[in-house]
Computed example of a mutant assay.
Amino acid sequence: MKLLATALFATAFGILLGLSFPSLWITKANLPKNLLRSITISNRHSDIAALVHAIDISKIWVPSNPKGAERLPPGIIASESDLYLRRLWGNPEEDLKKKPRYLVTFTVGYKQRQNIDACVKKFSDNFTIVLFHYDGRTSEWDDEFEWSKNVIHISVRKQTKWWYAKRFLHPDIVARYDYIFMWDEDLGVDHFDAEEYIHMVKKHGLEISQPGLDPEKGCTWQITKKREHVEVHKETDEKLEWCSNPPRPPCAAFVEIMAPVFSRDAWRCVWHMIQNDLVHGWGLDFALRRCVEEPAYEKIGIVDTQWIVHQFIPSLGSQGKEEDGKSPWQGVKDRCHMEWKMFERRVDEAEKEYFKSLQVQTPSNSTTLH
């Protein structure tokens, strides 16, 4: 009872004391300015200290840098390169008297050296020239051709140009070049001028192109045949069931893979579409339209004023191997057809998966023939 009485008395005394004094409000106006300033500075220093504690400013970390280079100051990063040949002495800034604006590659064997000699002579010093050697023979070229000493030779046996391209022509490596020519070794160039070709490509706004083919020497597709009295053409009539509206491959937005020419931007896209394990590139021609802005049939075309002859030399067949009773050439040909089907399937599946992730229906723009 005594304890309860004490508690009640203390409560009553507290209430009485609260009623006896006016309310006391503490605001900024009631506090001295010096005290306010001290509190503000103290809080600010606390925030900075917390930030410094969270981020170690003695170390560099730039998330916007290329992946793997976050620890470098942005000013030292060289994310792109080129294939310009440099000397081993002197001032690096004085190495290059001229920087070629275009790149041309040929996938070659020594047996076709005379053909390549004729091709190389069609390209000025405005072009960097790369020879991909599938037969392992490189030193003989220097002995026979003076120009060979000034071009780039890359030798890996029994490979195709798409294998080389995927591994040696990354878009960041060839970023200095406005256009990239990726040509086979069996092309006749008597009626071809490289500088004039570039002029036509720029004039007609072509992102992906090829020279017209001599129709008298055999052509696989109607669209790539050279036409008379025009500079460039972008459409043709193939089998009725193949053509559509808007125009699609092989009636439009189509070039063959023996002599394509890509703009820098188009190549960046095409390189990513090349599959590591599909070395022949069959099927790419039907999918190239994905790498330019729509309407694709306005950005892909055939240059008629600068035309070539496809000689149909089956040189890759000799790089095959006799297996299961098939000749080396037949084995290579079968692989080409197999890769075409595999590529089509991968494109279709990737497209369906993408639109499924968006929860929308796949549009009817397949790259394959039906």
Rank of each mutant, 00 (worst) to 15 (best):
H337V: 08
D135P: 06
E294Q: 13
K122S: 04
E349L: 11
M200Q: 09
A350E: 13
E207A: 13
F312I: 14
L3T: 06
L24D: 01
P246N: 09
T368W: 01
S38F: 06
K121C: 03
K67I: 13
G90R: 13
E144G: 05
R268W: 07
V151N: 07
T6I: 14
E353K: 15
S79N: 08
E140F: 09
W162H: 10
P100D: 05
G136N: 06
L16T: 09
Q210W: 00
H45F: 07
W242D: 13
E351L: 00
D265W: 01
F312T: 13
K299C: 01
K352H: 05
S124D: 13
L83N: 11
I39Q: 09
I308Y: 10
A49Q: 12
P249S: 09
A266R: 01
R335A: 08
N30P: 00
L169P: 10
L83G: 03
L103R: 08
W242G: 03
S366M: 04
V292W: 04
D95A: 12
S263R: 04
R345A: 14
Q319Y: 11
A175G: 00
H204T: 09
D125S: 08
I39M: 11
P295M: 06
K202F: 00
W147M: 00
E93Y: 09
N126V: 01
K239D: 10
S81G: 15
R37D: 12
Y84N: 07
P246F: 07
I302T: 02
V360L: 03
A54D: 12
Q114K: 15
F181G: 00
V201T: 11
M338Q: 14
R87V: 02
S46W: 11
C243I: 01
E228L: 12
Y102Q: 05
S46T: 10
E241S: 05
K2L: 09
S263N: 08
A49Y: 07
I26S: 04
C243G: 04
A252I: 02
W242I: 03
I198W: 01
T160N: 14
S124Y: 00
E228G: 11
V270W: 07
K326S: 05
D82N: 15
Q359A: 04
W162T: 08
H199R: 13
K234D: 02
Q222N: 13
A5K: 13
D324T: 02
K333F: 09
R167D: 06
I180S: 02
L240Q: 07
L187G: 02
T6A: 14
D285Q: 11
D265L: 11
S58A: 01
V230D: 10
R86A: 14
N276V: 06
I41N: 10
C243M: 03
C119N: 15
G68V: 04
A194Q: 00
H191K: 14
R44N: 12
I39E: 08
G281P: 07
L24H: 02
I274V: 15
V309C: 07
K299R: 15
C243Q: 02
S357R: 11
T305D: 11
G218K: 00
N365I: 01
R290A: 12
T362M: 03
I55L: 02
H153T: 05
T367M: 06
S124N: 14
A253L: 03
V230F: 05
S148R: 06
G218C: 01
I274R: 05
L83W: 14
G281Y: 07
H45N: 14
N30L: 09
H153G: 06
